[in-house]
Every structure is written in structure tokens, then in C-alpha cells.
Design a protein around this nucleic acid. Structure first.
Length: 274
DNA sequence: ATTGAGACCTGTCGGC
DNA sequence: TGCCGACAGGTCTCAA
């Protein structure tokens, strides 16, 4: 599920359930996900009220009345199931994360709603961050620009890629370059921009780090691809998982190809992505 | 400092 | 059917 657009969707679904609600009970079913839960995790949550739910890159942040922030990452397989207690005591599931073996955290809210975190591979994480400490947090502090914020543009992208000998696709996966793009949307954005995933990242910038036209195209493509995915309109993927299929660019006629970069799949059209 | 490889986990799918 | 390897949308750590 989770690259930036999917995390944004989760944030929007969770927001009306969480904001204004108080944690009545918190059930922790294991002591760690990718990292250990922070000490006194349950005690620090119970009784606090959620005042806001926001997103930074692929991280979800729930601001608490205690002044702390609940930081959550979905890893590869994480997600939430929301249920509402009914008069008859039964429950109505609102989506389909079925496998209860992988339910790791159960939040019971004052509203009667239950929010359950499920994560089969346990690459997700939860942490509690004290007021004012968010920017210094080991995972948040290193993130690059938010692609859908004003601070992200061709100049920022070019600056981040300047001098980098890594492949452009791998640079897009580097969260310090642009925060929130993952394996799918890196391929998608490169296709939209007509740029080869194999070209060196530095080639979109001048020697002094100024944006070339390729950087303009790529920055715009990243924004377009992410916004389209959040909106949920239009066909799913244009190259991702389409190896062997025809390139969808008008008049191209090429064939989508799968290659491996940094041990991950990249999909692109060798005919039109240069 | 950058870069590539391996690690962390579990599930699913295709081939033999 | 059973087993085995390859692969999965993320990120960290370590060695070169």
C-alpha cells in the first residue's frame, strides 16, 4: 500500500475518526515493530486526546493533548482497521485487513471506535515524540522536501541531485532528495518526464546545481503523479508492473521493460525515456 | 560522504 | 500436494 499517496489516503480516512477522540485503552500485542515501541507507550497515550492528524512524507503524525506526537509508519504492509461498537455489541469492519495474527496495536477510543494497526511484515514503526523534538527525530530530521509543498520545485530537485553519480531512479528513492516517493511512483514519474531511470542523477542539474529542463520536467512529473494517485482518478499505473506491454505514450510504440536497480524493480520504456 | 549489499519480516505466486 | 526460489509499494546499517 504505502507510498505518499496511500499514506495520504490513510490520513484522510483516519482524521475524522481520531481528531477529538480520547484514547480509552491501548492494547500492545508485541514489544516492537521495526523498532521497539517507546517506553511507557500505553501509559503515555491513555487519557490523551488527539487534536490533529497530519502526514510528513510516508509518516503519519497524531498530535496529542499531552504535547507529544504519535508518529506512525506503515512500512510495506501496515494499515488500520476501524470498527465501531454497535448496540448489540457486535462489530462492523470498514475494510479488509483480515489476518488478526498481525494485529499489533488496538486503540479503543472514547467515541466507541476501535482502530487496529495491522502489519504482516512489521516494517512499520510507532514512536512518541516530545513537544518540539519532531525536527530532531532520527527519522523525520533527515527527510528532504515534501513534494506537494511549495518548497519543492525543480531548483530543489536539482540541488539535491547535483554531483550525485547514482542512477536517477535511485536518487528519487532517497528520502533526503524528495520525501515520500517510493518504488512505484519513481518509475511512474520518470515515465511522465520521459527520463531514463538509468541516467545519473547529476545530469538533471548544471555543475553549479541549477536546474536543467529535465529537472523542470521531473519535478512537475513527480507532483502530477502523486496528485493523480491521491485523487484516485485515471488508470492506475502507466509503466509499473507493465513489463512487456506497449508504451502508452502517443506514437512511441516502445515496449515497457523491467530492470533491477538497487535490488528493486524499475519499469520504463527504453524507446522514449532518455 | 557516497554507494551498494545485506538485513529486517511474512506472504504469495510460479515452476518443478 | 509439497517444496523452493523469486518477489513484494520501506528503510536502516554496515563495509568499501
Amino acid at each position: 500500500m504505502p507510498e505518499l499517496p496511500e499514506v495520504e489516503s490513510v490520513k484522510r480516512a483516519l482524521e475524522p475518526v481520531l481528531v477529538g477522540a480520547t484514547f480509552a485503552t491501548v492494547e500492545l500485542r508485541r514489544k516492537n515493530l521495526r523498532i521497539p515501541f517507546p517506553r511507557r507507550f500505553v501509559d503515555r497515550l491513555v487519557g490523551t486526546t488527539i487534536t490533529a492528524v497530519t502526514r510528513r512524507a510516508k509518516y503519519l503524525l497524531a498530535t496529542l493533548s499531552s504535547g507529544e506526537t504519535l508518529l506512525m509508519h506503515l512500512g510495506m504492509t501496515g494499515g488500520f482497521r476501524v470498527t465501531h461498537a454497535r448496540i448489540d455489541g457486535g462489530y462492523r469492519s470498514e475494510d479488509g485487513l483480515d489476518d488478526e495474527r498481525h494485529d499489533h496495536v488496538v486503540f479503543s477510543l472514547s467515541s466507541g471506535a476501535t482502530v487496529t494497526f495491522n502489519d504482516a511484515r512489521r516494517f512499520g514503526l510507532m514512536d512518541l515524540v516530545r513537544r518540539g523534538a519532531l525536527d530532531a527525530h532520527p527519522v523525520l530530521g533527515r527527510l528532504g522536501p515534501e513534494p506537494l509543498a511549495a518548497a519543492f520545485d525543480a531548483a530543489a530537485l536539482a540541488r539535491a541531485c547535483c554531483g550525485k553519480s547514482v542512477a536517477l531512479k535511485l536518487a528519487l528513492l532517497d528520502q533526503r532528495v524528495v520525501a515520500g516517493v517510493g518504488n512505484i511512483y519513481a518509475s511512474e514519474a520518470l515515465w511522465v518526464a520521459g527520463l531514463s531511470p538509468k541516467r545519473k542523477a547529476a545530469t538533471i542539474a548544471t555543475a553549479t546545481g541549477r536546474p536543467r529542463p529535465t529537472a523542470e520536467r521531473l519535478a512537475a512529473a513527480i507532483v502530477e503523479v502523486l496528485e493523480l494517485a491521491i485523487a484516485g482518478t485515471g488508470p492506475r499505473f502507466r509503466v509499473y508492473e507493465r513489463a512487456g506491454g506497449p508504451c502508452l505514450r502517443q506514437g512511441c510504440g516502445g515496449t515497457v521493460t523491467r530492470i533491477v536497480q538497487g535490488a528493486r524493480s524499475t519499469f520504463y520504456c527504453p524507446a522514449c525515456q532518455k
